[in-house]
Design a protein around this nucleic acid. Sequence first.
RNA 1: GGAGGGGUGGCAGAGUGGUUGAAUGCGGCGGUCUUGAAAACCGUUGAGGUGUUACAGCCUCCGGGGGUUCGAAUCCCUCCCCCUCCGCCA
Length: 425
Amino acid sequence: MLDIKFIRENPGLVKAGIKNKNEKDTVDQILELDKKRREIIRATEELKAKRNKVSQEIGKLKKSGEDASEIIAEMKTVSDEIKSLDDELRRVNEKLNELLMWVPNLPHESVPVGLSEADNVEVRKWIPEDFSFEKDFEYLDHVELGKKLGILDFERGAKISGSGFPVYLGKGAMLERALINFMLNYHIQKHGYKEVLTPFLVNADSMKGTGQLPKMQEDMYFCEKDNLYPIPTAEVPITNLHRNEILSEEELPLKYVGFSACFRREAGSYGKESKGFLRVHQFNKVEMVKFVKPEDSYNALEALVKDAEDILKELKIPYRVIMLATGDLSFAAAKCYDLETWSPAEEKWLEASSCSNFESFQARRANIRFRRKNNKKPEFLHTLNGSGLATSRLMVSILENYQTPEGKVIVPKVLQPYTGFNVIG
RNA sequence: GGAGGGGUGGCAGAGUGGUUGAAUGCGGCGGUCUUGAAAACCGUUGAGGUGUUACAGCCUCCGGGGGUUCGAAUCCCUCCCCCUCCGCCA
């Protein structure tokens, strides 16, 4: 959510940001409602001040046994006026809030302007020393290979749940578990994150806090009986850990890392990019979340990306870092880097991580503040998060990049202590 | 799921219709005293909105929402959460 004061004072900036993000511009409507809101507040507060004053007098009169029926009758009409003004105010506020909830975060000035993926900018690329893009044999894609090795079973997953719910078997399941543990330990030990294991079902307030609601309603699962949403990412519960809290300056920055299963309906996404792991309804992910002071957030973003990159370097998987253009940014993000890993079977780069700075957008929605040592007034802090990383996409990278001409898969060295074996097949 | 109890400021804990945004204690901050510290004493110490150049002023908030009333932390409705006991259960 954007600050209504900021919108009031910088309507042009806000409109430009909305346009660059290709979202709906409701600024004029918002400003009009804001004006109306303040008019009502002014009128209602004047009446309330009167009511408070006279009510006290009535109290005094009654105490001394005098008759107050005349003033009481007069106050009755004042009270009615207040009530109707309050009703109107409530309606205006609801409408205003609803509109504000749909206003996207504004892109940071360093983000390339452009409406499509084509405007994204490659920032850097990392290729392992002995790696070659030249194929010396025909790579099997992860679906075929997984099936052949008996470590992935998409058909049975479809039987027990539906398409997009993969089953991991034997060494596949062990590799998945190894990946999760490796990444968690790495971020904890090398990058100083604190592990947190949060619920996989959250309430609507949490979803609003991080910005999934109201916009992404259709992309999420929902348990109607209990009003709970299966999380699309651990970002939601972890960021909401501190919802409605005021942290102290010394506590910052807070760095959390957590594992979760992620659930996504992704309505209307059938088609090309849906083979195997490329698009699933349930997958596993290790997520990093940071709470930082506003002046630190852009450095924190760079560090966050590096933290995710370190995992890929340790796994020796070729990747590139992409800075998303304004139009490709998510609703809540001000700036975002994607990490894409190389798929030798598909012969293209596939997104494996997304690292974003949300500035105060989520903090304002979720009411997460901090207080500076020498300053009384609490301020909204900045939140960031990044996948560190999604195992489903990593599984694709590992199975494909580490396959041998004989159709086996070598386990990346750093994972071997976790799997207890060094080859699959 | 059933029965009962409870949600008040950073924490503990008063307050059941009329200057109560809220006693008191602890904690925090500032000061006096002290060579320094402790103790003691004095003062101060929530958030949001509106408004102002900035103050002031005013309004709202005692789990959330709604209602009754001239007036609500206090009464009513509803939802949420916590605790105790019982049932069920990995």
